[in-house]
Design a protein around this nucleic acid. Sequence first.
DNA 1: CGTGAAACATTAGCGGC
DNA 2: GCCGCTAATGTTTCACG
Lengths: 171, 171
Amino acid sequence: MSKIELDKTDRKILEILQADGRLSNQDVAERVNLSPSPCLRRIKRLEEAGVIRQYVALVDPDKIGLGLLAYVNVRLEKHSEGPANSRVPATSPRFEFAQAVAAWPEVVACYAMTGDMDFLLRVHVEDMDHFSRFMMATLLRHPSVLDVKSSFALQRIKETTALPIEAPPTR
Amino acid sequence: MSKIELDKTDRKILEILQADGRLSNQDVAERVNLSPSPCLRRIKRLEEAGVIRQYVALVDPDKIGLGLLAYVNVRLEKHSEGPANSRVPATSPRFEFAQAVAAWPEVVACYAMTGDMDFLLRVHVEDMDHFSRFMMATLLRHPSVLDVKSSFALQRIKETTALPIEAPPTR
DNA sequence: CGTGAAACATTAGCGGC
DNA sequence: GCCGCTAATGTTTCACG
């Protein structure tokens, strides 16, 4: 969970694999001026430490018919609202909402946020029709949801999964 | 740019590679009940069609000291503001801003959005101090920027790069 | 779509700096 | 401690049936 010591070579490996996760160990080794075995040892260490969380293929949403990207701000009701005379305390709206979100495939990301909105959702759908159905039939139906505010991406200016690797802490 | 015909097997391949981009072709073949060669041909086709855009390693931001995730709404000034007597027409603030964003490593995503904010930025930084420096020294200094509104992620409820693969259009 | 063979990559053990 | 060699094993890839 805590931070890991990363030297210059580790950082370079991370940069390389963030840009191309399928490079062979040999290729990575070459680019960091190492032979394959120490390079592999480093990569394994980064994987086991959880610095590299996962390798994935990135799919183009437009190519699979998901032409609309929306960000939805969601505000939840304030109070636990079990049936008025229920003996069992209702679980919190936040928790129930989080559970629900996990099951909605259109929602690819959800964060609890500071500010006047409780949650920010990133939603991939086919088109406005699909979005509208998702809102009416799913999101707005959820009992924890008080109100929502949606914005739609008109243009992707920049989009990368590669995190900026900080410069070595000059010590 | 257009959509590609994807059968059930193609969709399954995409699901598998979105979950693990380093699976060997052999493993993928096994899971879709194909032998390696036709499976590889399908994957190659998906790559060449741009359906699979990239393979990447996902790095845990906390593990490399990027503990703070912010979403920043940016509003740009309305008018092209070249020097009053310039002969050369100023390029649009939107374009200049887009150019600048590309060069800021803290900004990992930027979308032009509908609504009263022009752009939505996803920003990864170390801490509030770093964020504050980024705002003062970089974002707010940019001539196109009129005002900004920031929110910070308190909790990651859900976060995946895997897009929902739609069910086959039952035809 | 499947088979097989050559080329290539991964990985563990060991010796050296 | 961290590097690099070697050699066995496993994988990718492509021509062909």
